Computed example of a mutant assay.
Amino acid sequence: MKRGLVTENHVVIYCDSCGDLYTDAAGEAVCFTSTHHAAYYLAGGRNGWLYDGDRITCDGCAITAECDLNGHDFVPPAESVTARCVRCGAPDNE
C-alpha cells in the first residue's frame, strides 16, 4: 500500500493545434497510464476530440476546421438578433 507523498507518472492529452488540455466535466485533466491508453481512449472521438494516429485535435479546432473547409452554417436569425453558425457560433457579420 502506498502512503505519504508518492511521485507517479501519467499521460495527459493536449490539442496539437491550440494546446488545449483534455479535461473531464469538472474541468480537471484526465490522466492515463500510458500514451497507448490515451490514444485508444481518443480513437472513439471522445467529446468531439479527434485522433488520426498522428495529430490530436480538440473539439474547438475541429469545428473551426470544418467551417474553414465547408463554410459556416447560419440559422435564420430571430427578430433583431444576429444569425450565428450552428457549428462554431460565429456571427454572420464577421
Results as ranks from 00 to 15, higher is better:
61 C>E: 04
20 D>T: 12
35 T>P: 10
60 G>P: 01
60 G>N: 12
62 A>E: 06
80 S>N: 09
70 N>T: 14
26 A>E: 06
52 D>H: 04
13 I>E: 09
71 G>H: 03
18 C>T: 07
27 G>T: 02
61 C>Q: 06
87 R>Q: 12
22 Y>S: 09
46 R>T: 13
22 Y>P: 03
81 V>H: 02
15 C>M: 03
87 R>P: 02
13 I>V: 15
31 C>H: 08
42 L>N: 04
18 C>N: 05
91 P>N: 00
19 G>Y: 07
23 T>N: 01
8 E>L: 10
91 P>I: 01
94 E>G: 02
71 G>F: 06
14 Y>K: 04
22 Y>A: 11
27 G>P: 01
31 C>M: 06
45 G>R: 04
59 D>F: 08
70 N>I: 14
61 C>S: 10
35 T>L: 07
22 Y>K: 12
34 S>L: 05
85 C>Q: 11
90 A>W: 01
33 T>K: 12
84 R>F: 03
53 G>R: 10
46 R>M: 13
92 D>Q: 12
12 V>K: 02
74 F>H: 10
91 P>C: 01
1 M>V: 14
26 A>V: 00
94 E>L: 08
67 C>Y: 08
36 H>I: 14
9 N>H: 06
24 D>Y: 03
40 Y>N: 15
90 A>C: 03
38 A>M: 08
21 L>A: 00
63 I>S: 14
